[in-house]
Design a protein around this nucleic acid. Structure first.
Lengths: 352, 352
DNA sequence: CGACGCTGAGACAACGTTGACTGGGCGAGA
DNA sequence: TCTCGCCCAGTCAACGTTGTCTCAGCGTCG
């Protein structure tokens, strides 16, 4: 801890157009015109106003401006994600920010931690600040509380999961198809006893991925066995425990489909702890950094997070530009990345 | 792509206090009082107003409110980080958000990508929206453009790096000491030829870490050799290449100190590509997910990101609460985490 | 030489809200 | 019974800005 020299006093308050106008010897409205680039102002006066503004350190007040302006736009959008700190949310935020920045729009961010009450509170807080639009990764299953905001002009796009009880645009990954691909890939490697490890099915994406898992088994005429299905609250520890439970079964699975990021990591920790990482196959849903450098590399179904974020932001701004076409749900495909763990063949004890 | 059913029309505009007042049969001011929890309102009227508000879907306009209110607070702070998508920035954002949320304050986020011009633009954009305060991980070395904002009441705290040419609060990690610890640790394991791989020294934190490296060598009376120092632009690819250059020297280092996240990851990729991960020791600055699961685990100097973010946010809000004490720089200690890679002893060819 | 149009700047009101003040009604004390 | 004071709700203006309207000044054309 170091001490600074002088206290940073806040003495004067911020200068307003009135003061700039007084110093430049013009009317307030003229200052307004200068800062809005209205061409019908005498160049000499423009210079005079700009100099006065610089001298005072004047900056236009965008909140006042947006209040008075016809459209009431704040050049700000709100973004509600699961957790600003997790890689998926962070990547999404960044992509949306990039699109927004190109239009001079800033992004307010809030983390929901899968809590529907918090979703509602934060959405309201954003609406109260009159954001022009919202990008939401919903935590709850009911967004009907936004009907009124939607009707009164707040544009919104849902990401990763569709809105519940609300007709709104959405951009989602193809969860079901991704899961299907993952499980089919394991089946192709000869596995007939494939475990499912994932989030609880109350989370829509988890339900869709689980659905893809079951569908893949069905297509391959493999039996569905509840004993090797673990739907646990997301989190590494829970996933580690669940994986251990599965592998200690008398009749353990020869492959794992882990349908969420933290679950994937938990499972691979468990496999390593048991020395089974080269024996039991694994495909995870969602890519993560360093997945390629592990031994074996972790095969995953990768979501195209950038594409999802970009499409969502573009849809939102399209709406803000006046697009009144029917709402759409855009589905972004996923991609299988083979790195080793998913290509381990069924070598252990066979069960057919 | 799925089609929705009906277009989401924006017909009516948002209701105002005026309309609520008309419906409830009271004066606007009374509605204002109800929404501000002023106790001198007849409970029957409170109910009537609330019902009218609910019926209309009224939500107070915080921008208008903040304009009129004495303090002009917007209950919004700005946060400028290097890149919202990288783990350090994301964790920082989340921590600041947590502290802010407890006070009903939202966070506007912007990514700077190490571009001083963008820092300036975004800081101005935030000020123009009248954020109450700023948390900044500066990209440039000169923040004097903020002197005026500071004087007119915008509070600000710098994070990770101190402000340049501006007297402001800051919270930083102990970069120099952390680097010193890392290199001393490698020296203790018997290494006498320790390479430095890091960002270019124009970035203050990189310079401090480099300084710690040199100091450790000095203390141990080891020679400083420019041949095994690589100061490259951050990024995995550049780090991979730099590491390979070092290891292909006729007289290669037996240990690496990698002073930045992406550099650390690049170096470990290079080591693996060359099959040297169990031969050449490595300590990285900054922890990263899965560092413990690699083989060997990667020893790091971990920054306490949560502590840094929390302290910064708390300092900011303290200032907003009226703290006028001299500015301070808070230094948060780092911590060595031993996981294997840093404990590899100097076994290869000796050079003394 | 007078009317007209145009250019460029100012006056005024309003955006949605709240601070300061006002005023009506009612109970209590003289 | 009258007055004083208090409680509670209303009126008015203002926050900093911009949309609308007005108007002064000047050049042009008949």
């Amino acid at each position: 801890m170091t001490q600074g020299e002088a206290p940073a006093r806040s003495t004067r308050s911020r200068p307003t157009m009135r003061e700039v106008a007084a110093l430049a010897g013009v009317a307030i409205k003229t200052v307004s015109r200068v800062f809005n680039g209205v061409p019908t102002v005498d160049p000499a006066i423009v210079t005079r106003v700009r100099e006065a503004a610089d001298q005072l350190g004047y900056r236009p007040n965008l909140t006042a401006s947006s209040l008075r302006r016809g459209d009431g736009r704040t050049a700000t959008i709100g973004m509600l994600v699961e957790d600003a700190a997790n890689p998926f949310s962070a990547a999404l935020t960044r992509t949306v920010e990039n699109v927004a920045r190109a239009r001079g729009v800033l992004v307010l961010v809030g983390s929901l931690d899968e809590d529907p009450a918090r979703e509602r509170e934060l959405a309201q807080a954003l609406v109260d600040r009159r954001v022009d639009g919202l990008v939401i990764v919903p935590a709850g299953r009911d967004q009907s509380y936004l009907i009124n905001e939607q009707r009164t002009g707040t544009r919104m796009v849902f990401v990763d999961r569709e809105a519940g009880l609300l007709d709104a645009d959405a951009v989602v990954s193809d969860n079901r198809q991704g899961a299907l691909t993952a499980v089919e890939h394991l089946i192709k490697a000869g596995h007939r006893r494939i475990a499912y490890l994932g989030d609880r099915p109350t989370i829509p994406t988890a339900a869709q991925r689980f659905d893809g898992y079951r569908h893949a088994l069905e297509v391959a005429h493999l039996p569905y066995d509840e004993a090797i299905v673990q739907q646990v609250p997301a989190g590494e520890e829970a996933a580690v425990a669940a994986t251990k439970r599965l592998l200690e079964l008398p009749d353990p699975p020869t492959a794992l489909f882990t349908s969420q990021n933290l679950v994937t990591i938990g499972a691979l920790r468990a496999l390593r702890a048991l020395g089974l990482q080269d024996t039991v196959a694994q495909v995870g849903f969602d890519d993560f950094p360093l997945a390629d450098i592990l031994n074996p590399g972790i095969s995953v179904i990768a979501q195209d997070v950038e594409e999802v974020g970009r499409r969502a932001a573009e849809m939102l701004f399209h709406r803000l530009d006046g697009d009144e076409s029917p709402t759409r749900t855009v589905t972004v495909p996923t991609r299988l990345i083979e790195r080793g763990s998913g290509e381990i063949t069924a070598g252990g004890p066979r069960h057919d």
